[in-house]
Design a protein around this nucleic acid. Structure first.
Length: 294
DNA sequence: CCAGACGTTGTT
DNA sequence: GTCTGG
DNA sequence: CCAGACGTTGTT
DNA sequence: GTCTGG
């Protein structure tokens, strides 16, 4: 299952219609490419939270938003499945529904994923038996306002924005990293030889694979990548109920190949679309399970 | 009728 | 798939 | 050090 | 190619 929904009527890979987000306004409005999907193929996307880049002039400061209670967040999503011409394997993809940012998070960005915070909302969203969009669903995709499940948001390391680098530590507050005790300690240790300093200053993350050169990445973006931008970058983790430390089962590598499991017990290899996309979506950081009918 | 469009966020 | 414009 | 940016109009 | 921000 890959982030970036490819509609089931697609013949070939079409990056312009591979959407990472679906605007709730367009679901409510009706018509368009969501018409044939929104009534039948809704899913929930579990994650620790989502990244958003605060634009401060020229600066782009990544922030992480999550539930204050530390439980997994469930985002409203749509999914689809298509076997493209010349392919044998079906391609499973999903998109995340966005809505206006609520007042509390508007300082950060004008959009926000739709968060399913109650059993009720989850049930309603995942119930596709009617196969149609209802006014009840339209209510669900309004800006987040569940006072019983408050969110929290804080700045995180800019490392998260680097191509080809992944770490569960990216969801930690920047105050505990760049400015914090760890960094101080690292600097002290490095006082001696330059080589030691270099080593001790950057164990903030584990570099999994060689970072491609900017030019390569640029080419890669131009030719292969899905929509050039994503607002909501998600770290997916294993499903579950208990709050826990982010557990990274399988970090992305440039030639990563992971399996996605589905509720029906089947699984699919994720090898076709290489890392740039997963890097954008971080959809392969750990395993993701998709709930819903189909 | 048929061909063509259908999307999102934002340079992560 | 489904709607719209020509 | 090295990844990433590298522009211009704007006001009409 | 070259500069700069982190």
């Amino acid at each position: 299952m890959k982030w970036g929904l490819v509609p089931h009527w697609s013949k070939h890979e079409d990056n312009t219609l591979r959407t990472i987000n679906a605007r709730s306004e367009n679901l409510v409005k009706g018509g368009g490419m969501w018409g044939s999907i929104k009534g039948r193929k809704r899913c929930a996307v579990p994650c620790e939270g989502y990244y958003e880049w605060l634009k401060k002039g020229k600066e782009k400061l990544p922030h992480f938003t999550k539930r204050q209670d530390g439980k997994l967040m469930l985002l409203a999503g749509l999914y689809d499945c298509v076997t493209l011409e010349g392919q044998t394997k079906p391609l499973w993809t999903f998109t995340i529904v966005t809505t206006d940012a609520n007042e509390e998070s508007r300082w950060l960005h004008d959009r926000q994923p739709v968060i399913l915070s109650t059993d009720m909302s989850l049930q309603v969203w995942l119930d596709t038996t009617s196969k149609i969009w209802t006014s009840e669903l339209s209510k669900l995709v309004e800006p987040y306002s569940d006072m019983n499940s408050p969110l929290t948001c804080y700045q995180v390391s800019k490392e998260v924005g680097k191509i080809g680098v992944e770490s569960a530590t990216f969801i930690q507050p920047v105050s505990q990293r760049e400015d914090g005790i760890q960094a101080m300690f690292a600097k002290q240790q490095g006082k001696g030889s330059p080589s030691k300093r270099k080593r001790s200053l950057s164990p903030k993350f584990v570099e999994i694979s060689p970072r491609p050169s900017p030019s390569k990445v640029r080419k890669y973006k131009e030719h292969i990548s899905p929509p050039s931008a994503s607002t909501n970058v998600i770290d997916f983790c294993e499903g579950g109920d208990e709050p826990r430390k982010p557990k990274v089962e399988k970090l992305n590598t440039w030639e990563d190949d992971s399996e996605t499991e589905y509720v029906d017990g089947s699984s699919q290899s994720d090898s076709e679309i290489p890392n740039h996309e997963s890097r954008k979506g971080k959809a392969k950081l750990g395993h993701m399970k998709v709930s819903g009918n189909g």
